[in-house]
Design a binder for these strands. Sequence first.
DNA 1: AATATATAGTGAAATAAATCACAATATAGA
DNA 2: TCTATATTGTGATTTATTTCACTATATATT
Lengths: 201, 201
Amino acid sequence: MNLSDKVINRLTLYYSILLGWRAENITSAQIAALLRIDASQVRKDIKMLDNVGVCKVGYPAAALKKSIEQTLGVGKAKEAFIVGAGNLGTALAKYDNFAPYGLNVLALFDNDPLKAGRIINGKEVFDISRLSDLTRRLKVQIAILTVPREFAQSVADLLAASGIKYIWNFSPSILQVPDDVRVWNENLVGNFLQFTINHKD
Amino acid sequence: MNLSDKVINRLTLYYSILLGWRAENITSAQIAALLRIDASQVRKDIKMLDNVGVCKVGYPAAALKKSIEQTLGVGKAKEAFIVGAGNLGTALAKYDNFAPYGLNVLALFDNDPLKAGRIINGKEVFDISRLSDLTRRLKVQIAILTVPREFAQSVADLLAASGIKYIWNFSPSILQVPDDVRVWNENLVGNFLQFTINHKD
DNA sequence: AATATATAGTGAAATAAATCACAATATAGA
DNA sequence: TCTATATTGTGATTTATTTCACTATATATT
């Protein structure tokens, strides 16, 4: 099954709805109304996961939730380091909504010697010099990059050299990395501007 | 000019590149290589903003940067409140990358009486009971919602009743709001999953 | 000044995504 | 049991987006 980014994004939204859903069944129209999208799109997305609905009743909520969980790999451990223990890094280390989706932050790294040794939400902050060694030993593949713009590229170089394969980039800079490293730019400002510029409805 | 979300998102990425660009000119191929997208797409995006390039040379970087700034409304003040002064709200209040894009956080709100009166990065934290009054008096239209899931809907109701028109929702819940209120779900987990599930290249 | 070339610009084609329209059907209710 | 109907499932259509392929041209080079 090959799910596009758009489908995956919608599935997580369906999942959010299901997390708070109390009734036994849910219809495509109900989901669509909450998200202000087309109901047939909801049905097609759900059908991709081989769920079946019941006419006049909708989809069994529990089964649908489970199906989305499996598809998204919720619960499948994905271990990550946070690199940059500033405000954003700290907030993400404390953010309690990652764990339910299987994203497990093991530790943080920072170049400020004063921060080394601190414990944030049960996760230790290490000096950045320890990054390569720990990445290799723990076989961590994911780095959440929350350093300031001016350090982002050099830290990305270090990450790539250390064997990190996925960089979730919260810094507002474009990273150049080897071909085997994937970068996701979490373009917060871009998202915000989309939303304020394109207020078409 | 009607820019799609996709175009706006790419423009912010081009802008990120230009912020760190030192040469006088930049070519569509250079931008495309950094973002790993098609160069003709870059050219079409840039052309939409009525920029002209020079054959064999590319686009003048300074003029292009200015043009994107104007299109995105960078610098045009957009005042916002952060609602929820927890870790994420605090991190966003301290995040220094919003200001250059014109997003100006005026204050924070929280329901914890212990937090009221604190100053975070020069912004005061108010009790949530002050929200309606201050929203109206300061004519603030944008709320950045960073409360836990269980409070998100009731706070959204309050925001809508207070006259907020845009809710940038960082909480992992789907909000039901009146038609004149726009919600942008900053689906962090969804973005993350896209990136780890769809590692196709 | 002439020429080769890198690059912008762009219509056409291909691909992807969303929406529409409606047939099929299981269920609720009479 | 029968009937009306809400809902799923889906092919067809439309719309949006990306990629391709090529032309035009300004510049660097000889």
